[in-house]
């Protein structure tokens, strides 16, 4: 009883702080930077630069597949990546196939594609093609490695595949020069297993930050050209193509939140040690 009644020390009170206060501080640390931008630098990592360099080296006859294999739960991280790479492909005039193995993917990327196409004055079916969702996941990957036109009878807008100019000369894996899979799950492995390994199509991936650490072994082994990891990866790519968009705007908030969290971890540990020493 006497123990309960004694006055709590500063560290004891700090350690027992309501978690909602912490949420509030982190929320403020993330919202305020949108209004007071300090222009913190976004250094580009080798994993991102390698993808950029690969696309830069492509010619207008080359074909890039961008597969948005995700749903709304991870779209804040992956949509900016898709947006940046799609814009880079349009800028480079490479033939781009935009698609998704996930049922909710096409609905998410449709507005991004339309906006980018409008900005670069590109036409669906001529400069790029937007494919619909087809049931099958890994089977879709295997099918399109063998025969693109048989896999997708129409594009996303219902135009018959035979009537789409851009795919006339695209047959199968021999015509693909890069596959980039954007995913918050294990679908990067589907492309790796059923496209890269058997057919040798160059691959890169854009993953949520949670999955980023799992990808490094595949980069080290040379199976992936590179990787975009989380919002940071997307912001790095926006820096490379010189278009500061969704990801770059979010990075300032991300940086400040990290600083606050690091401070909390340090303070929490000092408090824990101070209390432990007293006991």
């Amino acid at each position: 009883m006497a123990e309960d009644a004694r006055k709590k020390t500063f560290w004891e009170r700090l350690i027992q702080i309501d978690r909602r206060v912490i949420y509030l501080i982190i929320a403020l640390a993330m919202i305020l930077p949108f209004f007071f931008q300090m222009g913190l630098p976004i250094p580009v990592t080798k994993e991102v630069k390698d993808i950029y360099d690969h696309i830069e080296a492509l010619t207008p006859n080359d074909v890039v597949i961008l597969s948005a294999d995700f749903d709304p739960s991870v779209s804040p991280e992956l949509l900016p990546m898709f947006d940046a790479l799609f814009r880079h492909c349009l800028k480079k005039d490479v033939k781009t196939i935009a698609m998704s193995l996930y049922i909710q993917g096409p609905g998410l990327i449709a507005p991004i594609i339309q906006e980018a196409a409008k900005d670069y004055q590109k036409v669906n079916g001529v400069d790029y093609v937007f494919m619909p969702w087809i049931y099958g996941y890994t089977l879709v990957v295997m099918d399109m490695m063998e025969d693109l036109k048989a896999t997708f009878p129409t594009d996303y807008y219902g135009t018959r595949i035979e009537d789409i100019p851009i795919v006339k000369k695209i047959e199968n894996y021999e015509d693909y020069d890069l596959i980039v899979c954007f995913t918050g799950s294990s679908s990067y492995a589907w492309w790796l297993l059923y496209a890269h390994e058997p057919y040798g199509v160059p691959m890169a991936t854009g993953v949520t930050a949670v999955s980023a650490a799992d990808i490094y072994p595949y980069i080290q082994s040379g199976q992936y050209i590179g990787m975009l990891g989380g919002l940071k990866g997307a912001a790095e790519y926006e820096t490379l193509i010189n278009e500061k968009r969704m990801a770059t705007m979010g990075m300032e908030a991300q940086n400040w939140a990290h600083i606050v969290i690091i401070l909390f971890i340090i303070i929490g540990n000092i408090g824990y040690m101070a209390i432990a020493r007293k006991k």
């Binding site: 993330m30 949108f34 804040p76 949520t208 949670v210 650490a213 989380g230 919002l231 979010g250 991300q254």
Partner: peptide
């Protein structure tokens, strides 16, 4: 992995703030 996970969760909140 933990560091990346923190980054991922914050990114989702940033998406909503935007």
């Amino acid at each position: 992995t933990f560091g990346y996970t923190v980054m991922a969760r914050l990114s989702l909140f940033i998406g909503r703030v935007l």
